[in-house]
Structure formats: C-alpha cells, structure tokens
Amino acid sequence: MHEYSLASAIVNQVKQIAIEHKALKVNKVTVSADPYEMIIPELLQDAFKIIITEIELFQNAHLELLKLPAEIICLECEFKGEPSEEGDKEFAYNFKCSKCGSRDTHLNIRHLTIESVDLEILE
C-alpha cells in the first residue's frame, strides 16, 4: 500500500536532479531494494506511471527495480552480510549468521535506493 508514496518520493527527487542537470527528458530511473522493503514491484510500476503522466520531463521515463539480497547483522559476533540460509520456518526473519550460526540477528534493511538516472541533455 505504500508503493504510491514511494513512487512519488522517487519522482520528486529525480525531478530535482533533472532540473539541476538542465535535462530535457528523464529516460530511465534505476532503483534498488532488498526483499524486506516489502514492495510489490507491479504496484510500484503502476504508481510511477500514474504519477508521471502529468509531468512533461518524464514522458518517456521508465522505472527499473533491482532486487538486492538480504543483509543481516549478527548480535553475537557482529558479522554483517548475507545470511547462510533462509530464516527458520517459524521465524521467517531470524536469519542464521553465516559466521557463528546464531539466529540472534538483525535485518539490515536497505531501503529503496535511487541508484541512477538516465537523462537526455543538450550537448
């Protein structure tokens, strides 16, 4: 349900960047998120399309969503990185530390990030 808010946050920031670079058009916006951002990609795409219909700069813009792997921080040994396997059946997000095996781990949620924008600019 928050895809619409996210899409509008993306468009607002990209619009700012496009204006700074005196761009004629925004061609592509690339964003990345890990699985725990809880984004439904289709909804994000739909929201993006709806929001840009009114904005001249974005008429040809398309949105690319890169999916990142999960990242954990171990509270036992401070390991930071990809978990060793999917969380246990009961506690879906209690991932196992790939260094010490503890399940006392925190998710390091990497929020939806604007990676890059492809702009059409005057030479």
Binding site: Q13, I17, H21, L24, S116, V117, D118, L119, I121, E123
Partner: peptide
Amino acid sequence: TQEKKISV
C-alpha cells in the same frame, strides 16, 4: 542531445 547516466 545525448544521454547521460547520473549516479545517485
């Protein structure tokens, strides 16, 4: 015009 990728 040209296309330019801006890292954000």
